[in-house]
Write a protein that binds this DNA or RNA. Sequence first.
RNA 1: GUCACCUUCGUCUAGUGGUUAGGACACCGGGUUUUCAUCCCGGCAACGGGGGUUCAAUUCCCCCAGGUGAUGCCA
Length: 485
Amino acid sequence: MSIRVRYAPSPTGLQHIGGLRTALFNYLLAKSSGGSFILRIEDTDRERFDERSLQDIYDTFRWFGIQWDEGPDVGGPFGPYVQSERVTRYQEFALQLMGSGFAYEAFDSADDLREAREDGKQGYDPVFRDMPESEKQRYRDQGVQPVIRFRTPDEGTTVFEDAVLGRVKRKNRDIVTDPVLLKSDGFPTYHLAVVVDDHHMEISHVLRGQEWVPTTGLHVLLYEALGWEPPTFCHLPMVLGKDGQKLSKRHGATSVVEFRNAGYLPEAVMNYLSRLGWSYDDSREFFSRNDLETLFDVAKLSKSPAVFDYRKLDWFNGSYIREKSDAEIHDLILPFLLREGLISDPPETGQQSTIRTAVPLIKERMRVLSDAPDLLRFVLADISEWNVDELVPKKTPAADVPWYLERAKELIRDADAVPDEVLEERFRATATELGVKLGNLLMPLRVAVTGSTASPPLFGAIRLLGIETSIARVDACITLLNNST
RNA sequence: GUCACCUUCGUCUAGUGGUUAGGACACCGGGUUUUCAUCCCGGCAACGGGGGUUCAAUUCCCCCAGGUGAUGCCA
């Protein structure tokens, strides 16, 4: 039988990077096995539902570059793929479970339950479990909307075979007591909905985070009560922050859009995410989507949680940026330059060509696409202030610097017509003549032209900026230095 | 509290009943270089603790500790 997996996000917030990793592993299992990947929207919590989150799910995956075979937008033989459109189905099965004695109506008030929990009361006291019909009728007469609760067995043990964890056992009395299956608003809880849908969508493997391990026993019990065969469970190690706690805001970016906005490439994110809890061999680090689609194997999943390392992601991202063509980088950084107000929308032709020639100079200096604005600011915006300390090299009399700059200015006048090596030779000769190190001659020029001690290669930067503007900046710095000494 | 799961360098991980326990990121040092970056070379650094089993345990078993998770009319 063919493998069918699903990713089932709940549209109650922006897609989390950890969720994206779960989705990726599901997708990869489907691809590597020739199976199907299904997207199902789990929107049974009507209070927390958020339309923007739903849109975010689609946006995120389009950016990330993985596609599902069945889902709300593409359809499929097991639709609808949105749980709120399947409520009658859950109600039927809740009723069926009641009929077979596995479930019953309960009339607790939600407020009372919440209060009891806040008072530190452990577990649920199943007062309605065996209450006679006549007594329950009194609640109905008062207009109390019942919920349907599952009757968890007090004895026995539930076992399931996990593809990652192996055999997991749990005593039935340790499984949460009589959980709600159908809420008073008629919507199912996760437990009912996930079992009903996974069965009806013929899901063969459930890959989900390890936070679900404790409730899997309940799910197995539900499969049994419904007379269904449970799927293969495969609980993925969790993704943690640096402090070992669940990855959250205070560790840095957590939602996928944030990574996108920070200038991470989808292929780098995918490669990095694939290393979290999965490995191929003892040395390989780089995996394209295509590699992963063929090499992914559940057997190589690990059990222990992984800490999200932003620095390693940066390293991957920088590597992927360097592998891209100049034309691709050009297109990719445009939105980031625009966002910083460095170019107009659409970019002027002058800006276009400036950026085009600049890309080779900055490509190996970027770790994220959002590094581009800072690297190119010197050529896309005016510089009105210079840091005098940076203009004057260490162990150099400040009074000498204007003179260096004068000499440098003459040397770059015909930079457009002269190759780097020749230019450099001239600077070397001049440095020797002045009895200073090459760097002491070049650094003031670099700071004058680019406004910073760290910049793209100087001669390229000068040509990029234009000789005239470069010289004007040098002159401004000469004046500045003369006035400050 | 109870229950469940987890435990190899700081981090991601490979690995085997006998290995100098391997790779990558980070970090440190060196080289290339007009700065920064890239690139290259080198270095640092780990089997949580205690019991077993065994000729031999990082590897198999048990206990402990620590970590995380669940304990919702959230998913």
